[in-house]
């Protein structure tokens, strides 16, 4: 459904993504893994159409990503990006104005679950609340592909459960969910596939249950093996 072919993005002379060929199929929840700076975010931004590749192709349904694909691919960035004048309600109205697949009712349900109210002003939100708001507004889109960059960052334990719950609620046979996180343990049970990115390249792709079934190996084990001495945060 979403694939990149030998895609490259250079910033100056440094390649942030250095020739990644990878394919994401509907019906799966993918964990996209790699330390900071490995190229995950740049890859996602190219899929979202925010960054133009230096070389290679990013395809959605076999066609290069464009304005049409933006209607079906929902991207949530790590950092907050709402305008400073916006309340939680304004954020929802903005999405409703621009994304045909956005449902305000679904947004309200998600807000309630995340314990947010429409009247809150976005600049006054704590980082945890902001993270929850980003998730709520992104998942309120009935997208074909969701790409959530670090959805568990800055979120307390209980809210993480709610986020997992919401993600699982919207995962479906005809949808793709891509979660990038360095909190590997958070994703062991909800993802069924893992894509490891290392230094701008695809290092490995695994079916997680297959990995556990045949080798008794966890995603965290593979992470340690691929990235060597890099610490895995709990």
């Amino acid at each position: 459904m979403l694939e990149s072919r030998n895609i490259v993005k250079k910033f100056g002379s440094k390649a942030a993504v250095d020739g990644i060929t990878v394919r994401f199929e509907p019906g799966h929840v993918y964990a996209m893994l790699g330390p900071n700076g490995s190229g995950k975010t740049t890859w996602m931004k190219m899929a979202a159409g925010l960054i133009k590749p230096t070389a290679g192709e990013m395809l959605f349904g076999g066609r290069p990503v464009d304005l049409e694909s933006r209607k079906e691919i929902a991207y949530m960035s790590t950092e907050p990006y709402f305008y400073a004048w916006m309340t939680v309600k304004d954020v929802g109205k903005y999405y409703a104005d621009f994304f045909p697949d956005f449902s305000y009712d679904r947004y309200l349900r998600l807000l309630e679950r995340m314990e947010l109210t429409e009247g809150l002003k976005t600049p006054e939100l704590s980082s945890g609340m902001m993270a929850k708001l980003k998730i709520a507004v992104t998942l309120a889109r009935d997208a074909k592909v969701w790409m959530l960059d670090e959805p568990f960052n800055g979120i307390d334990l209980l809210a993480r459960d709610e986020i997992r719950r919401s993600i699982l609620e919207f995962a479906a046979d005809d949808r793709v969910l891509i979660l990038s996180s360095h909190l590997v343990e958070e994703m062991e049970a909800i993802a069924d596939r893992a894509v490891f990115i290392k230094e701008g390249r695809l290092a490995e792709e695994d079916d997680l249950e297959e990995l556990r079934d045949s080798r008794g190996v966890s995603m965290a084990d593979r992470y340690r093996a691929i990235y060597g001495r890099v610490e895995v945060e709990a």
Partner: peptide, 14 residues
């Protein structure tokens, strides 16, 4: 299937 996935916090395919 979906409810089981949500209740156990596991992937729907699992």
């Amino acid at each position: 299937g979906r409810d089981l996935a949500i209740a156990f916090s596991i992937n729907p395919n699992t």
